[in-house]
Simulated assay, not measured.
Amino acid sequence: MKNILVFVCITFCTMILAQNESDKSDLKVRYYMVMAPDSTLLRNENEASVFSYSLLCNAKKSIYADEGAKKYYDYLHDNAGNYGVLSVNSVPRSKSSVYKDGDQIIATLPIGRKDLYRFEEPALKWELIKGKKKTILSYSCNLAKTTSDTGKVYYAWYSPSIPISEGPFRFKGLNGLILEVYNEEKSILITAVEIAKVSELIEPLKYVNIFDVKDKSKFLKKRKEVMEDPNSNNLQSKYRATGPDGQEIKIDRRQSTVKVKENNLLD
């Protein structure tokens, strides 16, 4: 009986250890994402916005997010969503993330300034382009092309010498690590700037408030509504504008100069 208990204990500990190891990263890849208002990205970088992300990954799991987002949401989760004690500088520039577990790719993306939506991304189908080579961070890369489920065309440089089928955002599934991605309009460029061997925990970001829609079509529908009418959620605002005579000025809240450009939608 004693031997059986020892065997069960050893087996259980081995299973826990194996599970913990599967949640640890093999690599950390830092990427810069450059977004331009139109196709001027490669011609006028002064008009572009630059974001910094990191990818923690192993052969089965990964998390891709703003480098400060994990710390930010860990704090909110552990402090009951108390935003008041955080400085403006601690808020990450991007609240989006992509978590991969096996074949499942879960994206969390914002709509508007506050709302976050989580859904599953379909896997991309890649077309390998022969005869194209490029060196990124001293790694020889091949070129591939894909068309997303929303009809957008992307190109990716990947390195077979790093045999992990991973990459930034939802761009995964090639025979090697993706080190650079850009869209057909050349308004978005994501490129690796550093690769390191690290052992860190791979887990989803601990968002405090989130709409878990599961079906991506619901996210796309809601995003389209907000793009066409950015102020649709503010129609019941208690604030009113008045003129010099004290009369209320009627404002069409459905008119807004804030528009999201189609070329900057990364899906």
Rank of each mutant, 00 (worst) to 15 (best):
Y53F: 05
Y53V: 02
S54I: 00
L55M: 03
L56W: 01
L56A: 00
L56G: 00
L56I: 01
L56C: 01
N58G: 03
A59L: 11
K61Y: 00
I63G: 01
D66L: 07
D66K: 06
D66Q: 04
A69K: 03
A69N: 06
K70G: 03
K71G: 11
K71A: 07
Y73H: 09
Y75E: 04
H77Y: 09
D78V: 04
N79W: 10
N79H: 10
A80C: 08
A80K: 13
G81H: 07
N82C: 06
Y83I: 14
V85Q: 05
V85N: 12
L86Q: 08
S87M: 14
V88D: 09
V88F: 13
N89T: 08
N89C: 06
N89F: 09
P92I: 11
R93K: 11
S94T: 11
K95S: 12
S97M: 06
V98M: 11
Y99D: 14
K100S: 15
Q104P: 13
A107I: 10
A107K: 15
A107R: 13
T108K: 12
L109P: 02
P110H: 12
P110T: 06
P110A: 14
G112S: 12
G112N: 05
R113C: 13
K114Y: 07
L116I: 07
L116G: 13
Y117A: 14
Y117P: 09
F119Y: 11
F119H: 08
E120P: 15
E120S: 08
E120I: 14
E121G: 08
A123H: 08
A123C: 09
L124Q: 10
K125Y: 07
E127P: 06
E127H: 09
L128I: 09
L128A: 15
K130E: 12
G131H: 03
G131L: 02
K132I: 05
K132N: 08
I136P: 01
L137A: 05
S138V: 02
S138N: 13
Y139E: 02
Y139L: 01
C141V: 00
C141G: 00
C141L: 00
N142C: 01
L143K: 12
T146H: 01
